[in-house]
Design a protein around this nucleic acid. Structure first.
Lengths: 206, 206
DNA sequence: GTCTATATAGGGATAGAC
DNA sequence: GTCTATCCCTATATAGAC
């Protein structure tokens, strides 16, 4: 587990086209190291070392270490809106939720590294949110879900099922490390979605 | 979320009797701060401040900052053996696994703070393991589970279901934050165990 | 765009007084 | 058992040469 360098990290980080700009390379390396060692334990010196450049070079592309994490957060943040767009607030039900989870599953499968990064650096990312350099127009998918889970107008059985379902998806795709590297992505996706459906079925009136 | 001081943290940390020794108080405060701010971001100065003592005082009770985390890890580590004792290696099946998860659910409900601490500081705890100050007689529940999940002799559908089930339990009890604080522990336990059973049922030959 | 050199701060850890 | 004072190292960040 945490086998660095074995897999091409750049393969899944192609959002701004495949222009291997220095900035993107820094982000790729940072994503890898932040995930492996943790954000706080990763020094800019280490990033620069792996990059082949000097430490100060990074400051040309990013104002601070925090800015690097912010950029990585933004990579993920944008994807969240895809699922949020189809979300009608106040209409959260079992059926809607199940559909939402299917989307989430696909997004995690497509950008797994980013989700693992966030999972392993929750404290640092939350501090980012608190210092709120991007409070405007910021509505995390996570916050929406948390609201639904806290909604006491819903039955406890439904709320707990929803939390279990999110956990099931996260458990199989994010927390599981490399244990499923022998299973094709597509198959993994089907199995996880099936599990989510079985989990929500008893509390969903379709 | 992460509402510190609102709940009596000492209430669940009564393993060595209720002797509020300085050492235990340090551990309780550290557990709180490590969870809230993250291990790396928490300084000994902060711990000492909240303790009312000076920073160096902590070094009387613990050899290093890492030692504090180790002590907290040990608090949890011991509980793991309870579930491990009933575990017959090589006999991992759906039914065995479901029973194991029931035990895990109860243990998380009883020591939730410790599990949250570990979840939010995976990098630091893993480094602890690597530096192996306690390699002897050390068999984490997590390692056993990871082995089972990686076992290619088992059907992918079973392996993924197991990962989903662990995730479901963790999702509802650990990752969920404070969203279920209005639901009694006992009810929460029943709902989670039901979910785990529904999840494992399709792949369990009973 | 990348480098060297350096300023500055903060945190872990030690020595030894009380 | 607890304290003050201090050492030392590392890491972020800046200034300015090339």
């Amino acid at each position: 587990m945490a086998d660095s360098g074995a897999e091409p990290a750049a393969a899944e980080a192609d959002q701004g086209a495949e222009q291997n700009s220095t900035r993107e390379r820094i982000l790729d390396i940072a994503q890898e190291l932040f995930t492996e060692l943790g954000y706080e334990k990763t020094s800019l010196r280490q990033i620069a070392e792996r990059l082949g450049y000097s430490k100060a070079a990074i400051y040309y592309h990013f104002a601070s270490k925090e800015d690097i994490l912010m950029a990585l957060h933004m990579r993920l943040h944008d994807f969240g809106f895809g699922a949020l767009a189809n979300l009608d607030p106040g209409q959260m039900s079992g059926a809607v939720f199940t559909a939402l989870l299917d989307q989430l599953t696909d997004q995690i499968l497509g950008h797994r590294g980013l989700f693992v990064l966030h999972e392993r650096n929750r404290a640092a990312v939350e501090k980012l949110h608190r210092d709120a350099h991007h409070d405007a127009a910021h509505a995390d998918l996570e916050i929406v879900i948390r609201q639904a889970l806290s909604d006491q107008r819903l039955a406890p059985s439904l709320r707990v099922r929803m939390a279990c379902t999110i956990g099931a998806v996260m458990g199989a795709l994010v927390l599981s490390g490399e244990v499923f590297s022998d299973i094709p992505s597509a198959e993994l996706g089907v199995l996880v979605k099936d599990a989510a459906r079985d989990l929500m079925a008893p509390v969903t009136s379709s």
